[in-house]
Design a binder for these strands. Structure first.
Lengths: 230, 230
DNA sequence: CGATGTATTGATGTGGATCAAAATAAGTGG
DNA sequence: CCACTTATTTTGATCCACATCAATACATCG
């Protein structure tokens, strides 16, 4: 199969990972990959296992998470098409994945094994620069999240999560952005309990800022969330 | 001044940033730098300003921190000789520092401007690999800290901070590792209040796990801290 | 229609922040 | 060496945001 053909979505051409490469170079890189599928709710990379595989997300939605020594599942960033998974595999020394990745919805990915992606990086040093930029974007995410955990209340964090996800996975619809997400996922992302999340969302719904149905949330006025942090 | 001469401490030769480079290459890189001093309590890089300067810490102690939009100061990792400061300056696009760095004790650093360090990275691609490894180590730190914030109690976090700092800045002495650190710094690192920190430390002192004097802490049995998390 | 996953709502508990004050230790200058 | 200032630390009393526990309601589907 030739993954670099017309079936590759636009978002890939604009992927941060492929930034600054010529179309010919992009084709060469994509041609060295294999296309793979991961059904929703399956794990793509496993925290603690050898980082041997590198992926570029073509379609679907995934997220990073990890488990703490005391068994708590910690949710990290969401990944959308154009983003990479398993970035640890590009390091010069063999390493282990810091976190796991799971397909939240059915995912199509491009896959390279470690030595292939490392060879490509040697051939196209630009890829290495891009990997560094991506690593920095993770650091940025963690710094933001760290600050939020320390200095913001539960409603504030939930509002931040909601407006962040809206930009990432919101679909324009009549009467506001539509997010297909459960309360549990929201609570996990904001690091609050399911109960607290439900209470805050109910309040916002009463005020007409959002509408919530099972597994789906309609965001009417994102800005106003921040004016009602009780 | 020739910074690459015999006055460069051993720890620099073992710096993660210079890993895998030949002595001749290291000399070339260090010779392109200037030596600079920062007195204790001065700021080296400023969050939000253009990332134009890159530093390698030779002597002293520094730490990253940043201020949240609502004015709270958030303490991040400590830096010891051999570690870099201002890493954002190596990115291919001009960027801004994500965080600030301050000298905790008097610091001696090597300094490169952005274009110099970028030229060196083009000449020695190994530097770029090393920069990526360092970025990953920051991600690792954030992931650990994130997990701790979410899933561990105040005494647990303080115990973690203490054992981490012991490895980093502890000096062997009769009757346990000696750390020169204040309660305020410990509290900041563990993200608890000064009062909570003081109470926990008092308890540990009563049990003989530590000894605390003004600005100084003696760690007798690090392991036992984790057995007394009340 | 049960069965199962998802969401709401109320009652209760608590870890650690916050507020207030005093004790201790370390300079500093006369 | 002492009086005085200033930084660090301790200790007690109070409070509150959020977790936790318990129960029920609602949706969706085979």
């Amino acid at each position: 199969m030739a993954p670099g053909d017309s079936t590759v979505p636009i978002s890939i051409q604009e992927s941060l990972f492929l930034r600054g490469l010529s179309p010919a170079e992009v084709t060469a890189i994509l041609n060295a990959s294999m296309r793979r599928q991961f059904p929703a709710r399956t794990t793509i990379t496993h925290q603690g296992t050898r980082a041997d595989d590198f992926y570029l997300l073509l379609e679907g939605r995934a997220r990073y998470f990890f488990e703490t020594p005391n068994g708590k599942k910690v949710l990290l960033m969401w990944m959308v098409p154009g983003e990479i998974l398993g970035g640890m595999s590009v390091l010069d020394r063999p390493s282990r994945y810091l976190a796991s990745t799971e397909a939240v919805k059915d995912c199509t990915v491009l896959w390279w094994n470690r030595s292939t992606i490392r060879d490509l990086m040697r051939e196209f040093p630009r890829l290495l620069e891009n990997a560094l930029s991506i690593a920095v974007s993770y650091i940025d995410w963690f710094a933001e999240t760290h600050a939020a955990l320390i200095s913001r209340s539960a409603p504030e964090r939930l509002a931040l999560v909601l407006s962040g996800l809206a930009r990432l996975i919101g679909k324009q619809a009549s009467g506001g952005l539509l997010l297909d997400i459960t309360n549990e996922e929201l609570a996990g992302a904001a690091n609050i309990t399911l109960y607290t999340a439900s209470r805050i969302l109910s309040r916002w719904q009463k005020k007409g800022f959002i509408r919530k149905t099972r597994g789906m949330l309609q965001l009417r006025s994102p800005e106003r969330l921040f004016l009602d942090l009780g």
